[in-house]
Amino acid sequence: MIVPIFVLISVIGLLAALGTVLSRNLVHAALYLVAFFFTIACQFVLLEAEFLAAIQVLVYIGAVAIILMFGIMLTRNILGDDTTSVPAGWKLPAGLASLTLFGVLAYGISNHTGAHGSAATVGTAWSSVSQRPGIGPDADPKTPRAVAIANMGKTVGDEMMTRYVVGFEVAGLLLTAAIVGAVVLAYRDGADDDPARRVLKAVGLFPPTPPPPGRAPTPAAGPAATAGEPRV
């Protein structure tokens, strides 16, 4: 029963990925991407990582896809037309390259023989693993993995606060940095448009300072007249 479900999900997922990559309309591509993300969440469920599936739906579909949509809208692709298509001569090599990559990966996966090393745990070939361990009536529910599957949320929390605490803290730092930097870069420049200064101005704290010489971006001028840019 589980095998046909997997096949169905995989086929939908690959078609959605192809749709994302090939559809000329960017909004369609983003919708295909949402479908792809959802099939990935389904795969996580098949792999008994339901917690991860929930995160996948919340973060990828709930946040990433929406940010991408905003990006599409804000760059004036309101109709979603990807007018900048690729010359046909470049498509064939790109397709061949990715086919080659897939071929190499698939060959490597099917011919995997297990590491040459000493550990017997990794000695089995991937192609001979047809059954996941720890399933069935005689399976031991006390193995660490079985316990983890049963209490995934708790295990993830425990691991984050012990083994991967540095990674967890650094991930927090990374998100802070990304937000701070993205706000700085995406905000329109010019002193008056500075978000903090706008607030200061509203409460009468911002004294208007003349822009320093040599670096005076004129908002009316187009992108070509960006100050300080040497003409090419």
């Binding site: 960017l26 599409i72 390259a97 990715s98 990559l101």
Partner: peptide, 23 residues
């Protein structure tokens, strides 16, 4: 692997930066 290869193809083929990001 197939999804990865498709993603790589997208990076190589698309010229729109948002499409590259999706790939």
């Amino acid at each position: 692997s197939a999804s990865f290869a498709i993603g790589l193809m997208g990076v190589l083929v698309r010229r729109n930066p948002i499409a590259v990001l999706m790939a």
